[in-house]
Design a protein around this nucleic acid. Structure first.
Length: 612
DNA sequence: AGCCCTTGCGCG
DNA sequence: AAAGCGCGCAAGGGCT
């Protein structure tokens, strides 16, 4: 009487090993009673072999992480927490709690409590997105909650079919992203500690004891101090911005900051030393020996991704700075013996995405070429590629100064649909409205502070963006994305009357306009990349299945528009093909028929640093 | 000692 | 040549 289920909900038990499984139809209707299994990873692996259902779980980061650590991989999932965040975002409630407990409470019109804080990885399996309080429901009850919330999410997605037809794909891709993230975290980036050491030693001198400054930095610090007239005994610290500022002002320079580009204009002999110090100091602090101790285990760097951690849907990382690995440190990323790295970079991704989402035929034609900027330059900028690039980037970021005006004017006249698209998004943002990505991810609404600063009223009026259970919006103070710190226009209420209130409020409004202008592009680009990743993951699994005699290739790294696959050498060519096919598949799924292409710069290398 | 903010730079 | 999006992270420094 085995029923082949499309979908199966899964719940981890408190100790991680036992758990519950329940077969469902794809709309969440149970096909039978919950089934207790003594060894959850083994049971999941068995069902995966039998029917490869779409697994439903509360928090992929935890639930799938547990499975992966037990050596189990699955093909598909529905991640309730990530889905809830996307659905809440469409309601303008980005800050509302989104884990299973909160989602279920909202569904039942019960009081919604804040999401529990993240726990150490060892404790994660027990959490299941719920408070570990004394009244936390047992595993079987949690499975019921999971099934209820899943069915509700399926209904909510279906209800948005007209306004957001891409939502189903977005949820699938976001969930698949969580699979990729968990697998990369477990497999890790191949990282040669000896090479890392060699690079550090070459640049900084030998590893110092404790947290002493490495020799090269100590030496530079003294020389910088001397150059600016500090006797060595005074202990000049180039890491201290106020000290550097004082020194330079004392030397007669009018300088507003110690940013590198500003220092470079000074022409003081100490500046070069200072810049060298700053560069090396940063390398040491951010990716030096301490970082190595913390993050490299057994020749692998294990980053922690936060899927959908950025408002635009880009991934973030926790603690390791994985998305900011300095180019020079990529020399330490080396394939194992007999293996290769396939490194693929989707070049000029955002302008291509703009061409696709805006439906601008002229820009799409340029984006059908290998070098979009060159094509654009030939078409509208008399062959001046630099001008074409500057103009297009300026249009996507909302640049107004630096002589960009004429370039934007050319773009407006030649590519009205593309320019109209970003300018419409900017106007919506300035007016406090919401914008959406290609697949339906929604930008956050303006904060209370933003509205107060723009309208001059209602600094703390009724603000709850509707919705049961409200909870949690909490501190609205920091200024959200697109809302860089702005002053409240004066020490007290009379700011609203002051002469420059209008100017300030326009400035604040425009800042949000730049955010929404960029959101529609960056968020759509993130979706293309997510689908690319998901399709590639599927192809790699198929490739592994076709080559049982060979170890399996695996995704090793992902940064916004770039992937690294670690593969047995004999499969490298096929992996490179798979990467390209996935890119084209993502184009079709996300954008449908379009002239736009997403060409990749792909390299098969031993060392990441050799890819570019 | 620890919190919170600012600064500056790494990445895309 | 410098002002235009999204982030994470470390260090300094003011505060409690």
């Amino acid at each position: 009487m085995a029923v082949a289920a499309d979908t199966a909900a899964v719940g981890a038990g408190d100790r991680g090993r036992p758990g519950w499984i329940r077969a469902l139809t794809d709309d969440g209707t149970p096909l039978g009673p919950p089934e207790w299994v003594a060894d959850l990873p083994a049971a999941v692996a068995e069902r995966e072999r039998e029917s490869a259902p779409r697994w439903v779980w509360a928090v992929g980061e935890d639930d799938y992480g547990l499975l992966v650590r037990s050596g189990v991989r699955v093909a598909r999932c529905h991640d309730v927490a990530l889905t809830e965040a996307i659905l809440l975002g469409r309601e303008g409630r980005h800050e509302a709690p989104h884990l299973l407990g909160a989602a279920w409470a909202r569904l039942r019109s019960l009081p919604v409590r804040p999401d529990p804080p993240r726990q150490a990885p060892e404790a994660q399996s027990a959490l299941f997105g719920l408070d570990a309080a004394a009244d936390a429901p047992d595993a079987e009850h949690r499975l019921e909650m999971l099934v209820d919330v899943y069915a509700d999410q399926v209904r909510r997605i279906a209800a948005q079919e007209r306004q957001a037809p891409g939502l189903r794909l977005l949820v699938a891709a976001e969930s698949a992203g969580a699979l990729v993230a968990a697998e990369i975290e477990a497999d890790g980036v191949p990282w040669r500690v000896d090479v890392h050491d060699a690079v550090l030693t070459e640049l900084l001198g030998p590893r110092p004891f404790g947290d002493a400054r490495p020799a090269k930095l100590a030496d530079l610090a003294v020389r910088v101090g001397e150059a600016f007239g500090f006797p060595p005994s005074r202990g000049f610290n180039p890491d201290s911005t106020p000290q550097v500022l004082r020194a330079l002002r004392y030397a007669g320079f009018q300088i507003s900051s110690t940013r590198a580009w500003e220092l470079r204009q000074l022409g003081h002999p100490g500046v070069e030393l200072l810049l060298e110090y700053k560069e090396l100091s940063r390398l040491h602090a951010a990716h030096g020996w301490a970082w190595q101790d913390a993050w490299i285990r057994n020749g692998r760097f294990h980053p922690e991704y936060v899927v959908g951690g950025v408002v635009t849907g880009r991934w973030a990382t926790r603690n390791s700075g994985a998305l900011q690995i300095p180019r020079i440190m990529r020399r330490a990323v080396v394939a194992d013996e007999g293996w290769k790295l396939v490194v693929a970079d989707a070049g000029q991704l955002e302008p291509r995405v703009l061409a696709a989402v805006s439906g601008d035929v002229g820009l799409a034609r340029a984006a059908g070429e290998g070098d979009l900027y060159a094509a654009l330059a030939a078409e509208a900028f008399e062959g001046d590629r630099a001008a074409a690039k500057l103009g297009l980037l300026g249009a996507m970021y909302g640049q107004t100064k630096g002589g960009i005006g004429p370039l934007l004017a050319v773009l407006r006249s030649r590519f009205p649909a593309a320019m109209g698209f970003v300018e419409e998004a900017a106007r919506a943002g300035e007016a406090g409205g919401m914008v959406h990505s290609r697949l339906g991810r929604t930008c956050p609404p303006p904060s209370r502070r933003w509205r107060a600063a723009v309208t001059g009223i209602g600094g703390d009026g009724a603000d709850e963006g509707g919705g049961a259970g409200g909870g949690g919006v909490g501190l609205d103070g920091g200024g959200g994305p697109g809302e860089p710190g702005f002053d409240d226009g004066g020490p007290d209420g009379e700011g609203a009357e002051s002469a420059d209130f209008g100017r300030q409020s326009a400035q604040v409004a425009r800042a949000r306009g730049r955010f929404t202008r960029n959101f529609v592009v960056q968020a759509s680009a993130a979706e293309w990349a997510l689908v690319w990743l998901a399709l590639l993951r599927r192809s790699l699994a198929a490739l592994a299945a076709e080559n049982p005699g060979s170890p399996a290739p695996h995704l090793a790294f992902f940064v916004h528009d770039e992937v690294v696959v670690h593969t047995p050498q004999e499969l490298a060519a096929q992996v490179a093909d798979a990467v390209a096919e996935a890119a084209d598949g993502a184009r079709l799924l996300v954008f449908g028929p379009t002239l736009v292409r997403f060409p990749l710069a792909t390299a098969v290398v031993d060392c990441y640093a050799d890819a570019k």
